[in-house]
């Protein structure tokens, strides 16, 4: 056994993991090779140092969780984009216009004291305090909300979001305007509420495409553009796959044909919107 070969067995010899024959061979080599013996003693010392070494106490930075969460969020967003290319296209084309549409909330919001004179002549009646309502205005939608206590409301279009605090006794009136060619999705969420409302608001151009397939959300975008009707979704899984055919003249018939068997309830709401829910 030469020196190199003997060195290969240093760890196993130190840990007592060599079989008897090999162990005797290594011991014989160490007895007859003073230089190698010195090397092995130094190796033993290193092993003892490693065995007693107290690696540093590690201080985990307080920002670590947030850093990881941010990286995961970035990555999830990146992965979602190619999967929903159709949506990304309208978000991109929406561009500044999307921001403008949502910013309308702050700009044209009409607030008035409860019981005061109406600023806008088209204020819908509220059935109960805290109830949010949507009213059809042509192909667009008007959001109306009058909370009994101060609430924060978020309206998002794609990556853009507008947040507004509405004080008790005030009424929020805001058109949700889509100035783009194709339909977009407005997500309206009241802070602290479990679920929000999702609105599919048609674009400025009517789509003549009659058939398609994709997720329920893709269907609703196509539906809004084809029939020029806003859709209010209050519940349901919009990621389910679906195929559709807009051959029917009646919008509700077309929606029921596509979604009826999937457990969705389709209804013409009193405020003019098409309502979709899963109960």
């Amino acid at each position: 056994m030469n020196q190199d070969k003997a060195r290969d067995f240093f760890s196993a010899y130190y840990e007592g993991n060599l079989d008897a024959g090999l162990r005797q061979t290594v011991e014989q080599k160490l007895r007859t090779d003073a230089a190698l013996q010195a090397e092995y003693r130094a190796f033993e010392e290193t092993m003892e140092d490693l065995g007693t070494l107290k690696f540093d106490r590690v201080v985990v930075p307080a920002s670590l969780s947030e850093k990881i969460a941010n990286r995961l969020r970035e990555d999830r967003l990146k992965r979602q984009e190619p999967a929903s290319r159709g949506v990304r296209i309208w978000v991109r084309s929406l561009g500044f216009a999307a921001l403008a549409a949502v910013a309308v909330i702050g700009a044209v919001m009409s607030m008035r004291s409860s019981g005061g004179a109406s600023v806008a002549g088209t204020v819908p009646q509220f059935n109960a305090p805290d109830q949010m309502s949507f009213l059809m205005r042509g192909t667009q939608v008007e959001l109306s909300y009058k909370p009994s206590s101060a609430r924060v409301i978020d309206v998002a279009v794609g990556p853009s979001m507008q947040r507004q605090t509405v004080q008790a006794g005030q009424k929020l009136l805001s058109p949700l305007v889509n100035p783009n060619a194709h339909a977009v999705v407005f997500n309206v969420q009241i802070e602290g509420e479990k679920s929000g409302s999702t609105l599919f608001v048609p674009g400025t151009e009517k789509s003549d495409t009659l058939t398609g397939q994709g997720k329920v959300s893709d269907f609703l975008l196509a539906f809004a553009d084809h029939y020029r009707l806003p859709v209010l979704v209050s519940s349901g899984d919009l990621n389910k796959p679906v195929t559709w055919d807009f051959g029917a003249d009646e919008p509700l018939d077309a929606a029921k044909a596509a979604l009826g068997d999937m457990g969705f309830v389709i209804e013409q709401k009193i405020d003019g919107l098409v309502g979709v829910s899963d109960h």
């Binding site: 690696f55 540093d56 590690v58 201080v59 985990v60 930075p61 920002s63 670590l64 850093k67 990881i68 941010n70 990286r71 995961l72 990555d75």
Partner: peptide, 24 residues
């Protein structure tokens, strides 16, 4: 994970980068 990454890198920022990338 951070403990291991820090022992490898001996640099807090780099360790956090390694851990973030690893979880992704």
């Amino acid at each position: 994970a951070y403990q291991y990454a820090y022992r490898l890198t001996r640099n807090a920022e780099e360790a956090a980068d390694v851990v973030s990338e690893a979880f992704v």
